[in-house]
Amino acid sequence: MRPAVLLLALILPVPLMAQQRIDRRMAVSSTASIRINDLVGMVRLVGWDRDSLVVVGELPARAGQLYFGGSTDAAKVGLEGTDTGSVVTSATLEVRVPKHARVSVRGAVVSLDAGGLEGDLDFITTAGRLHVEGAPRTVTAETLDGNVEVAGPVASLRVRTAGGTVVLRGVRGDLTVTTVSGAILIGGARISRARLETVSGEIAWKGAIERGGTLDAQTHSGNIELRLPPTLGADLELSAPSGAITSEFTLKGKPSASGTLRTSIGDGGAAITARTFRGRISLLKQPEVDANPAAPGGISGTSR
């Protein structure tokens, strides 16, 4: 190494020396499959109107080397040689994909903010956090310990997390959310089918169910709070063997000896099932004029 370079290397601050500037681009088709593997740190995923895949940003050296390539129909972006002994949080990358692309994200720890996507998004990580804004056609998210937040009229949404909290705003269509201990908080929804299950978390729902649609909410030890439009017609089956069932709607009938109440509100039509072994069930009327309809229902004490 030449003396001047050596001197420069010695006086430069380590983080600056260790940071890699990333700028990679390639042409892909408008509906290409884009696979993103093992990224770390903060990643912004942007759907745009161009038929190209772009990755820009900065990576610390211990994040490893970026690989980038593939064909116009199937491209792959990822990191290899990442230092698995440390948690890399200083990486910041922006990945731009055609908005109708099918995007698949796999990895251990990544914090992903996605926006502008209109295709399919598939996200499977161990401890990743996902935040989606916009209207992807489908979102499938599985993370063991990260939170998932989706805001937008996603037509089909499947979320599974163990300890993470799931917050959904303004979702549409078909919805499946499962957690072990995380809360499920939903606002401004209008669905044809929803299945919400947690073992020890709370479930708070605010939204409408299409006529003929179904809402199935189940938790073992959490409470269930359903805020429904006052004009909604639905057949209800509510089971709370150990807790109370309270309602702002007028409910006919009484719970059976086993703690199940089957009744209707309005002229029926939708089917709502709510079950909690140890918690309570509350049916509340959503305000006629809701100042913030997309805000998820909340249960006191629930951490967000």
Partner: peptide, 24 residues
């Protein structure tokens, strides 16, 4: 009701383990 809740808990266990099997 209890049988249904027990069944659901068992199914959640299986589905959770399936999720774990899909992890990287």
């Amino acid at each position: 009701v209890l049988a249904g809740l027990l069944r659901a808990a068992h199914r959640q266990r299986v589905e959770f383990l399936q999720q774990a099997a899909r992890l990287p």
